[in-house]
Nucleic acid binder design. Sequence first.
DNA 1: CTAGGTGCAAATAATTTGCAGAGGC
DNA 2: GCCTCTGCAAATTATTTGCACCTAG
Lengths: 322, 322
Amino acid sequence: MSIPSATEFVDQHRPAGGRRSDKRDVIVEIFLRQQGHIAADALVDLVRRHDARISRATIYRTLQWMVDAGIARRVDFGDGRFRFEHAYRHPRHFHFICKKCHSSLEFLSSDIETLIEEIAAVRGFEPDQSVLQIYGLCQGCRGGIAADRASFPTDAVFARDALRIAIATERSGREFYARAAKLTRDARGRRVFEKLATEEIDHLNRLERRYQQLLDQHPGLEQQPAFLFFKGAANGLFAAGTEELKKGVDDRKALLIGIRCERGSHRFFKRYGERFEESEGKRVFLQFADEEREHLDLLIREYRLRAPRRRRPSRDARRRRA
Amino acid sequence: MSIPSATEFVDQHRPAGGRRSDKRDVIVEIFLRQQGHIAADALVDLVRRHDARISRATIYRTLQWMVDAGIARRVDFGDGRFRFEHAYRHPRHFHFICKKCHSSLEFLSSDIETLIEEIAAVRGFEPDQSVLQIYGLCQGCRGGIAADRASFPTDAVFARDALRIAIATERSGREFYARAAKLTRDARGRRVFEKLATEEIDHLNRLERRYQQLLDQHPGLEQQPAFLFFKGAANGLFAAGTEELKKGVDDRKALLIGIRCERGSHRFFKRYGERFEESEGKRVFLQFADEEREHLDLLIREYRLRAPRRRRPSRDARRRRA
DNA sequence: CTAGGTGCAAATAATTTGCAGAGGC
DNA sequence: GCCTCTGCAAATTATTTGCACCTAG
């Protein structure tokens, strides 16, 4: 389950019944080396520099082949020509497009995607892919400081942001459980929350170590602007639990609240992670989802072990028995 | 300040130093009669049916002229040709595009637009216009019931949705003030909240009358699917106030809370209304914004009138005086 | 041997432009 | 009369295709 190399990535996507060809391999290889998007014509230039005998038609055909195979995506900035960007370690995303210098910034927003899905459901539409392009002026062209166009692999930034979301989620979980422990009078319930809080701290530490590792691997990564924006993920998950705390909570109830939170977290990360092509970021999402799932299973087992508190049989029952 | 007719709309947008021409007028007139979007070629057919001597080039040139003047918008569905839609009583919007039957549904989401602005600000980008196209399968092509393609003027649906948001906001305001009145122990504070609640009911009634009027004007309008989606507007505004109620509130504090809520509401509707071309929906937004502003001013005056409660001078002060 | 793959040149398709003449102000 | 608008045909631009040839399996 490790991340494939570029060659493996292409091989995985190669359609059955196709033949190999040196020229196509050259074109694909040069294409995959590109950061961001490239127009067909620009790719022709690049390829020609390498081998002048490769014709323009072949390059167009290969581009089409890559799009069909899922190796490339065709994007349209509305200026009458298509650009292509590769999918290798490069999730689908949205674009800010500068009208002046024609540069573009990439980003993704889980919140926007969630809203799109909600609205589509209301209108009975089954969305398949969304194109969001925001035209305007970039920082540089507005006379501000130009954002550094250092070409970090999107994948690394994506992984970083995925980890940041995971960390934010754990933090918010830790805070919730700590607060819950303070508020809970029932001793057993309190102990459950305390344990949950400790576990969140453990998990948080692990995530933070992994984050640090990633930063060590890519010096300067932390300063890269955000790629993946999210608000709902971390904020929404624990909100529902807060209300219930007021009613007083015993150990089983506490476990139930924990189960609900972990399940929400698990689902969000699972669902979101599944949306992406193989990449470090996808792995962060899915791994975190798995970890939440494990924790969830543990809580469920714990819940089942604790028999419901014996209640004094009701007056009716006592009378009937007598 | 009434809504201009189509002719007035064109005249308002006509650039200075241009000359009139019958042919162009014909093209513009036929174009403005269209619902939804139309490809240049299709417009050529339509215009030719009216006057066969108008050349293709003139129609392309007029289309360009309309886009420059802000009468038309050019939209790109990525299939290699542009479509045009007019701006007259037709706010900018997003599209669901069916990959099978090539139909399209229009919608707008204040929440998505807010998120876009927030993200743009973080990335230092100054957004000017956003293109959001969601490709997939429409209800009809999925084998469900086809949505009725009854061609309601977008403007009417937009106005309806704007009123719905305003009504939802008032409702949530009324509920908040009623709850606040119940929770407030201080008699003067309670009376302030009670008065606010009554005022909201008045306002709500007025809005509902207006809504009914609109429905009477356009039979079948209520059944049209939603065009404008919103979640944040009504929900978010009164949330902050709820926390404060717990701390106990006197009349001045109650007024302050009311002021904050009305101000939030005013700002949202003002800002959102200003984004649109002249239309019934824009008017609903701006009028509602004005009404909130009036209410706000009233509250502020009321607040100023009420002197702060006299406090017993502190022990230090008494000692100093002695 | 045969189904793809490739090169070349020609075709396409939507849109734009040069230029001569028509027409609004 | 001047400057803009219009019609026609030719140009442009990015992309696709027909066809003869090539080559991997």
